[in-house]
Design a binder for these strands. Structure first.
Lengths: 141, 141
DNA sequence: TATATTAATTAGATTGTACTAACTAAAATT
DNA sequence: AATTTTAGTTAGTACAATCTAATTAATATA
């Protein structure tokens, strides 16, 4: 096969495999009362670490009322907490509860599972090559 | 770094890079009147080739009324056509219009762009290694 | 031929996610 | 001290995507 075409082909298949791992992780029982969107909100809260409502709304790109609604629901469901800022009493900082941390970890599980699958398919030398080559891709970008 | 951890790390970063390419492809002007979900419906129509409403509903995992609504909207927007089956006059087969083919191709563009980025970052020898190793992963699964 | 099954549709409701506009309370500025 | 700005909320709305139940029309079966 033409090398360029072969690469696109591999990218396509790997991407759809990753998608399947994501979907499988998302079907976990513990995630059953959360939508994909809600999980995304929780991921962003983790990523930003103790964001305010405004931080969240800027990062996600939705209005503040939308954030209020979404966050309140996640608080009611027990995945988030809001704590008053000490410096400015208008402001809240958001954090994951233990349950929140747990579901974010389950979500991350997809990557672990995928990595596990790869390492089961390859020998040590190939694994090292994969890490080495993709580190180059990541750094080059 | 511990090899196992390094692999998970690489998988995580590559996966989020792929996500960014997907998002960028989705922001194309031609896709602006379509939701992600609608694009997914169009992808599945292409994948199944001339599916019936029932085929679609089974593949996507939603009820037939849902498919009727979704498909009718996509027909009205000019991305799908339905044609009567010759064998069974209750049945329709679905197909992409030219506009439908175009948007599905734009969606696929993410994979091409990602592949292009990879090939710009690596030399020929590394590229061959990537294709070789991931072909092994795909076949092993 | 009458009856049951199947493919798609219609009607009506629900849920999730988003918006704008108007509001409250706190902080910053004049 | 009065005014403006900022952070988050409330109220009301809209739309996408889904469902169940009932319906129509064609096909298959008893």
């Amino acid at each position: 096969m033409e090398p360029r075409k072969a690469l696109v082909d591999v990218v396509e298949k790997i991407s759809s495999m990753m998608g399947e791992f994501e979907d499988k992780a998302l079907n976990s029982d513990e995630l059953s009362d959360l939508t994909v969107r809600q999980l995304y909100y929780l991921d962003i809260v983790k990523k930003l670490s103790y964001p305010t409502f405004t931080d969240l709304s800027e990062e996600i790109g939705v209005t503040k009322p939308t954030i209020t609604t979404a966050v309140n629901k996640l608080i009611k469901q027990g995945y988030l907490k809001k704590v008053h800022s000490i410096e400015d009493r208008r402001v809240y900082n958001l954090l994951l509860t233990e349950a929140g941390k747990r579901v974010v970890d389950i979500h991350d599980k997809a990557h672990n599972d995928f990595a596990l699958m790869i390492s089961n398919c390859l020998n040590d030398q190939e694994l090292n090559k994969v890490v080495e080559i993709f580190t180059k891709v990541i750094d080059c970008q």
